[in-house]
Design a protein around this nucleic acid. Structure first.
Lengths: 125, 125
DNA sequence: GTAATTGCAAATGGTTTGCAGCATC
DNA sequence: GATGCTGCAAACCATTTGCAATTAC
């Protein structure tokens, strides 16, 4: 356990808005100016392997991280400002079991994203 | 309309297995050896804009394309061999409307993926 | 004949990796 | 003192882009 890792942990624990690695990095740099992006990447990857953080990867944007609820759950994503919200949970276990039965796959996890325009962006045209 | 574009169209129409751009490219090159990857990328992107193909982007792998059902629907993806299946449809309209009501987002589209091990990969260890 | 498309090569950008030096325990 | 972490810079790689030559209509 190093100060850098502690910084990543604290940032993730204190962030409700699904930060990017870059945002985590900027946050830590305030208190620990010599930290490197690579270290943040490595730590986040480590936490992912320990199931302490949920990674939300996007092919056309930076990955986002959720340290609050490190298990699959739906997200609602604004395609304009990229804000991400966690709506109240919808349980997909039944659908997951149905998918497994229909396809023969051994389902391990899922991902459910809704894309649209958030209330703030709707207001501003 | 050019022979290259026709090739992309025919390949997408004849593929049930969600090909990558690279796979589309390899297919077309058999009949049209001078085609370039860039052209395939451009054509696929064009078709995406026309809603004639569904793009399945992955942050850690190549994008996959579905010309059969160019509208959002669930996918079941093997994390080992990357095979993608289309299970029978599950209608998410009700859940989508619920998400919209709860978050105030104007939902435009969604994405539902189940990840696991396909029957063939389960057999082979 | 004009506007659009092709194909090459170079750029892009988030993420990963190699490695020397350094911190942790 | 040994193991493992940090941080720099370079590598990665799917995708995108600039641009000159070519093609479609």
């Amino acid at each position: 356990m190093t100060p850098q890792r502690l910084g990543v942990l604290k940032t993730l624990a204190g962030s409700v808005n699904h930060p990017t690695v870059e945002e985590i990095y900027e946050q830590i740099k305030r208190q620990f100016p010599t930290v490197s992006l690579a270290t943040v990447y490595k730590t986040v990857s480590l936490l992912k392997g320990l199931n302490e953080v949920l990674e939300l990867g996007f092919p056309d944007a930076s990955n986002r991280y959720d340290g609050y609820r490190p298990f699959p759950h739906p997200h609602v994503i604004c395609v304009r400002c990229r804000k991400i919200m966690d709506p109240e949970l919808v349980n997909l276990e039944a659908i997951s079991a149905e998918m497994s039965r229909k396809t023969g796959y051994e389902i391990q996890y899922h991902r459910l994203d809704f894309f649209g325009i958030c209330p703030e962006c709707r207001k501003s045209g």
